[in-house]
């Protein structure tokens, strides 16, 4: 790129408006890509956040409801029959998995009590793992955007500042009118990066603690339920 071309390209830069779209259109193609990517990341982060918030609220609600019915003295057989009809999540899934294993062991002719306790615990472990995996799916996206967003924005900033220096060199002038558009464009990239990263980090921390809490609750229920089943096994054996 010879200086004359740079000067030509820098000329509209000096007279451009500093609106959001003006900044975007006057930016270099790489900076444009950075801005677009960060915008998409921001949209994705908020989508995940909304989705997870709804999911966790629903899961918590379902757990509360299930624990209420579980400890209400209702027969486990009956509960199993109502729950196994429809696909269920979290605590109900845990209960259904354990009950299915229990029933299978009793309904077969050869009553295999040996190792039943271990099998039930294994099944519940696997179910807990699956449930937790479902709860924390896409949380890594939040973590990634939260940590990498500022760097991506910074990359756009560096590029924009390089552009503004090029326009300084082309116009041989360091007045504010020459420097300002490049700097504004550059800072715009950083701003978008921060806009994407800050909610991502906040949501990631909040959701990680939420997942942790729910996983612990599941494990507590699994321990309690396995204790009940163990008592039943010992009584029947």
């Amino acid at each position: 790129m010879n200086p004359a071309e740079v000067a030509q390209s820098a000329l509209p830069l000096t007279s451009s408006d500093l609106s959001i779209f003006g900044l975007f259109w006057s930016a270099h193609i790489i900076v444009k890509a950075v801005m677009l990517g960060l915008l998409i990341a921001s949209i994705w982060v908020w989508a995940i956040a909304i989705d997870k918030t709804v999911l966790y609220a629903r899961t918590r609600h379902a757990m509360d409801r299930f624990e209420k019915t579980f400890w209400s003295g209702q027969s486990l057989e009956e509960l199993y029959r109502t729950l196994s009809a429809r696909p269920s999540h979290s605590m109900a899934a845990l209960f259904v998995a354990a009950m299915r294993e229990w029933k299978r062991s009793f309904e077969t002719q050869a009553r295999s009590f040996a190792g039943l306790q271990m099998r039930i615990e294994k099944v519940m472990e696997v179910t807990i793992a699956r449930e937790v995996e479902r709860l924390e799916r896409r949380l890594l996206v939040l973590a990634t955007v939260g940590s990498a967003g500022p760097f991506i924005g910074l990359f756009g900033t560096v590029w924009g500042i390089m552009t503004s220096f090029q326009s300084i060199a082309a116009s041989k002038n360091t007045s504010l009118a020459v420097v300002a558009p490049g700097i504004a464009e550059a800072l715009f990239a950083t701003a978008i990066g921060l806009v994407a990263a800050i909610p991502a980090t906040i949501f990631y921390n909040k959701f990680a603690s939420e997942v942790n809490k729910q996983a612990q609750r599941l494990e507590g229920f699994a321990d309690e339920f396995s204790a009940i089943l163990s008592r039943q096994i010992d009584e029947r054996a």
Binding site: L39, S42, I43, W44, V45, W46, A47, I48, A49, I50, D51, V54
Partner: peptide, 12 residues
């Protein structure tokens, strides 16, 4: 997921 995405995109 779809509802979340729609809401997020429209909010942006």
């Amino acid at each position: 997921m779809k509802t979340g995405l729609t809401i997020s995109a429209s909010a942006h």
